[in-house]
């Protein structure tokens, strides 16, 4: 179930992005997102990972290139969950109301959604903080609310932009495992952005390494270790070998970006 199928959810062809400021964030990006896979975009800071994710979600227009969705329902309202690089919470609403937002916008009543919202909050360890306001939370806790909000609706496609960067290692490992469990259970397609080689190898089927500005695909790695992956995978020789390959690709990508 937790295996990448041949079905494509979305494909980007020759996608480029030039901002009004003149910055070329992406240049000729080619990428297929396959049904049910755990795909990670790995690249140096500023290489256009967030930009690529926003374009995929339809939050930003590509300046060039085409994005095709074979199944249009995959991008219907509520079908995509997005975790931004910043927590992006409504400061005037408490934790519960923030996580309840997707349901509210879909017209689901509070009572109907309560069980799922609370389950999602419990899942990120914030069950006791439902009544707290964002200002009363730490940076990592805010990020976890944002993750709970994206997971609560069980989207078909989950786009996550460095969701665990602000967390300590223990919480990160726990959420890594929770995320993998969820992914396996539900068959969600995940596109995950990170600049951590270790995280990318632990989580993904497939890693796309991007060059720095303008962002392009530099290399593509498959991590064929079967799931479920547990903590013992983190210390295995196989894991280390994959990490070495990914690191080398990243170093190569950075060099390629500089020369471009």
């Amino acid at each position: 179930m937790a295996q990448a199928s041949a079905v494509t959810v979305a494909s980007l062809r020759g996608v480029a992005k030039r901002f009004a400021s003149g910055t070329r964030a992406l240049g000729d990006l080619n990428l297929d997102v396959r049904q049910g896979e755990f795909l990670t975009l790995l690249g140096p800071s500023g290489c256009g990972k967030s930009t690529a994710l926003r374009i995929l979600a339809g939050l930003s227009e590509a300046s060039d290139g085409v994005i095709t969705w074979p199944d249009a329902s995959a991008r219907a309202a509520g079908a995509i969950g997005f975790v931004f690089q910043e927590p992006t919470l409504m400061p005037w609403a408490n934790v519960f109301d923030n996580a309840y937002l997707p349901f509210r916008l879909a017209g689901t009543s509070r009572a109907q959604a309560a069980a799922r919202v609370n389950a999602a909050l419990d899942g990120v360890g914030l069950g006791d903080f439902a009544d707290a306001y964002p200002r009363e939370l730490s940076g990592g806790m805010k990020m976890r609310v944002s993750i709970a909000r994206a997971l609560a609706t069980q989207p078909h496609l989950l786009l996550m932009d460095e969701p665990f960067a602000a967390l300590d290692e223990i919480s990160r490992f726990k959420l890594n495992n929770d995320l993998l469990a969820l992914w396996q259970q539900r068959g969600t397609t995940v596109v995950f952005v990170t600049h951590s080689v270790f995280e990318s190898v632990y989580l993904s089927n497939r890693i796309v390494v991007m060059t720095s500005r303008p962002g392009r695909v530099f290399a593509e790695l498959t991590v064929d270790t079967p799931y479920p992956r547990s903590e013992s995978f983190r210390t295995s020789a196989e894991y280390v070998a994959h990490c070495r390959r990914a690191s080398q690709a990243l170093v190569g990508a950075m060099a390629a970006g500089e020369s471009a």
Binding site: R54, A57, L59, A77, F82, F84, T88, L101
Partner: peptide
């Protein structure tokens, strides 16, 4: 308004 919040609302079809 926070641009990302605005993006989130549109993503959920508000």
């Amino acid at each position: 308004v926070d641009r990302n919040l605005l993006a989130l609302f549109s993503l959920y079809g508000a």
